[in-house]
């Protein structure tokens, strides 16, 4: 029985490329990974938004209206609904002048209890050092 922690580090802008969406969907796929693993083995993802990647976390995204696709906001909320650890870099939101009120911090509207956390980069670095595998997007 073992748990492997995977760190998904999202650095890219939302919608410019598919990278941040794929990082989110791969992290969410941890919910069904057991079918390929031995009993008791688990994969635990942690999702960190750094650099321009923090812009993925803005509220009120209108991707369905403009592109006809699900929003990154919905994926972040689904991650929180599934109790994934979501970290947002404090220095980067300050650099971009983004207030906490503008960010997706919870998924209460869909029944989620876990909240996203705004943390200093040093904490994200600790997370990157502690995971078994790092997946940079």
């Amino acid at each position: 029985m073992a748990t492997k922690r995977l760190g998904f580090i999202i650095r890219g802008l939302p919608y410019k490329t598919e990278a941040s969406r794929l990082a989110m969907t791969h992290a969410i796929a941890s919910q069904s990974v057991e079918i390929y693993l031995e009993d008791g083995d688990m994969v635990e993802p942690v999702v960190c938004f750094v650099g321009d990647g923090v812009l993925n976390c803005l509220k009120n995204q209108q991707a369905m209206k403009h592109y006809g696709i699900t929003s990154l906001e919905q994926h972040i909320k689904n991650s929180l609904l599934l109790d994934l650890k979501v970290l947002i870099c404090k220095e980067d939101i300050e650099r971009l002048g983004i207030k906490e009120a503008s960010l997706i911090m919870d998924a209460e509207d869909i029944g989620g209890e876990t909240k996203a956390q705004i943390v200093p980069y040093s904490e994200i670095q600790k997370e990157m050092e502690s995971v078994d595998h790092l997946l940079l997007s």
Binding site: G12, T17, E18, Y36, L37, V43, H133, L135
Partner: peptide, 22 residues
């Protein structure tokens, strides 16, 4: 396969190299 296959492969890997984006 679906994306969970990749996570399972990461589980048993000694090293993972993830090349995201274009």
């Amino acid at each position: 396969f679906s994306m969970d296959w990749y996570l399972a492969s990461c589980f048993s890997a000694d090293r993972v190299l993830h090349i995201g984006g274009d």
